[in-house]
Design a protein around this nucleic acid. Structure first.
Lengths: 239, 239
DNA sequence: TAGATTGTTAATCGATTAACAATC
DNA sequence: TAGATTGTTAATCGATTAACAATC
């Protein structure tokens, strides 16, 4: 393993000092569009590493991640200078840096609220545990589901949502309840201290500014695909 | 029902003529960011309609959709002039317009490839049928799953993916296979004539320019939430 | 040294916001 | 008419792209 020129943890860039805590500058200065692409870069790095490569280039990594090399370099430049001109990037080192920036150095505790078909599938989704998240609780309102074991956890009643959050220390919640109750459940999650919510319920959620919401809406995605399908078929097979 | 001032189908705006087919201008001129918000507006309109309202305003609609009134009006302006100054928007009329623009006036045929936990949940997802999509096929590579009935359809073998696409006339596919085979399945879908793919498999898919891909990556979403969680906890409870 | 590849700069592009004239 | 609300304009902001100097 080649010694990286830059010692780990060394303060080598004015934007992203090596301090793990107390440093909010990275959080403030990495553009949202860049943050959203970092998980893809991390995945690409893992694929590269699994093939035994120690060095990689912006060309290779960008191809794997499905972006342009220019965009990849620009994105990485917000994190610091972790490559070497004329050489490329150290796979393991860059991987660690992105892991730290994304906040994956510590385990984040996740609960799933709503254990229907989708919640069940997500609770069993291997990607959650594989990527440094700990599934620590399952909650559902249906008495027929409460008490059953899913993904190694006993489903707890929605009544006790607050208790589950505080006992488990969950900071992130996956929301798969019906749309009709999503806002109410969301409010309870926020009151209980959750700061990140991944919702699969259609419709906008209102949250205070310190809470982050990511929404996945399957029906919306299909509708967006329909738009392009229409635009395409509208030319009557021309082209 | 109040007669809308603008007759349906009338060519009343230079950008979006009323022609249903042969008109590619809307597809070319509506910005992607706007297209991505249209499903949310449609949902907001449906909620408004279900409460019996016939008229609405950009203020009300924007609040429901979780955007600013200025953004809503700007977005709608790309579709045409469907409101009335001083009055607001006719709920039913606007709903129809957005439905047409999104290509939901015709039923789009959808297949699900990969009937594991997630594929199973999505096949049973009511939102698909409710929003003008027809689930017309299920495909899986696992012999233990092939032949079983899910959501009223018999799961067909992955060998016959092309046949399923051509027999059903599916133009949109939902992809929930393991990441390792996603690109290969994607290639087959494209070869069979699918033009829209909603993938839940992590990793970038390479497709020709005429094919549209929307990617939902649950692990990435959680990692993005972790970034903000970190940025928040990094200030040591300050603020 | 010569070749390679990063990190950064500047230009372009697209999206958002705010304000207001048009007009119902 | 007076009040209300749209549709549009212009300004701002953020993201992407391309090119290249820095430097390994």
């Amino acid at each position: 393993m080649p010694a990286p020129r830059v010692t780990e943890g060394r303060v080598d860039d004015r934007r992203t000092a090596g301090r793990r805590s107390g440093d909010r500058r990275a959080g403030q200065s990495v553009p949202p569009a860049t943050v959203a692409r970092l998980p893809g870069y991390l995945r690409a790095l893992e694929a590269t590493a699994s093939q035994g490569a120690v060095l990689t280039s912006s060309d290779e990594l960008a191809a794997r991640a499905g972006v342009t090399p220019a965009q990849l370099r620009k994105d990485l430049s917000f994190l610091g200078s972790y490559g070497r001109r004329g050489v490329g990037y150290d796979v393991g080192h860059l991987r660690e840096q992105i892991t730290v920036v994304l906040g994956l150095a510590d385990v984040r505790r996740v609960i799933v609220v709503g254990v229907g078909n989708l919640g069940h599938a997500l609770a069993n989704y291997a990607g959650i545990a594989e990527r440094g998240f700990a599934l620590v609780g399952l909650v559902d309102a249906d008495p027929a589901v409460v008490g059953s074991t899913v993904a190694g956890l006993v489903v707890e009643p929605a009544d006790d949502l607050r208790g589950v959050v505080s006992r488990t220390g969950a900071t992130i919640a996956v929301l798969t309840t019906p749309a009709a109750v999503a806002q109410q459940v969301c409010d309870e999650l926020v009151a209980a201290g959750v700061v990140g919510i991944l919702t699969f319920a259609p419709g906008a959620l209102r949250v205070p500014p310190h809470v982050d919401v990511r929404a996945v809406d399957v029906a919306s995605e299909l509708q967006i695909l329909a738009f392009h399908d229409r635009a395409r078929s509208a030319d009557g097979g021309a082209s």
